[in-house]
């Protein structure tokens, strides 16, 4: 893999899951630091200076969300969350607390590694964004606010554009409804989730080949949206 040997902190209480994460991550060339409790994890995050943290939400001592908050107080390192399937709200809480993405248990290693790579890449990218975003036949030059589809220019309203831009800032990663509403409409609109449904449909109609089966503007039911590029 092209990434340098990054250090990954795994905060997880189940020894078997730690074991398989260690094996899989080491096989991919990552250096792994393990912490079996939330308190330990928060300390290790400071002492080992990892490049990324994987935090289980169901820890026995401290709530995983609390661990994320503690790390976020001083560090912008990407944080991935592991969570049980039926607990959508816990994921949202973790994401709103500063986590960057999540993987639902049970998960395949492939999925985890993909998320991990996206998060690391996002962290290493310069915040000012540069190249043109490719979404199938659509090319989006966000800096110049120019969007085209198969060469023809596509007109986006200001809100549609802000929505696309916000998702593109977190390319490949999930963005919660709350985050989107706050950044696109403003802090007083965080409860108006129906705005999102309406504008997301408009955006898909303009950018997706089959708006019902989107390939790029994906729905994470109960959590938020995710913009996926071509690769």
């Amino acid at each position: 893999m092209s990434e340098p040997r990054a250090t990954v902190l795994v905060v997880e209480d189940e020894p078997e899951i730690r074991r398989f994460l260690r094996t899989s991550l080491a096989a991919e060339g990552y250096r792994v630091v393990e912490a079996e409790s939330g308190a330990r994890g928060a300390v290790d995050a400071a002492t080992h200076k990892p490049d990324l943290a994987v935090v289980d939400l169901g820890l026995p001592d401290v709530d995983g969300v609390e661990v994320i908050r503690r790390i976020r107080k001083w560090s912008a390192m990407p944080i991935l969350v592991l969570s049980a399937r039926t607990r959508e709200q816990a994921k949202v809480d973790a994401l709103d607390a500063g986590a960057d993405d999540y993987v639902t248990k049970p998960f395949g290693v492939g999925e985890l590694l993909a998320r991990l790579r996206v998060a690391l890449r996002h962290a290493s990218r310069s915040p000012t964004g540069e190249e043109v975003l490719r979404l199938g036949p659509v090319e989006a030059d966000l800096k110049r606010r120019r969007i085209s589809r198969g060469g023809a220019e596509v007109h986006l309203t200001p809100i549609e554009f802000r929505l696309l831009n916000c998702l593109a800032q977190h390319l490949g990663m999930v963005v919660t409804h709350r985050q989107l509403l706050r950044e696109v409409w403003g802090p007083s609109y965080v409860e108006h989730t129906h705005y999102l449904r309406i504008y997301m449909k408009q955006l898909r109609d303009k950018l997706e080949e089959d708006p019902v089966r989107p390939k790029h503007l994906l729905t994470e039911t109960g959590v938020g949206y995710r913009l996926v590029g071509d690769d």
Partner: peptide, 9 residues
């Protein structure tokens, strides 16, 4: 449509 799309994916 959004929910159906998520399921189909």
């Amino acid at each position: 449509a959004e929910i159906a799309g998520a399921v189909l994916r």
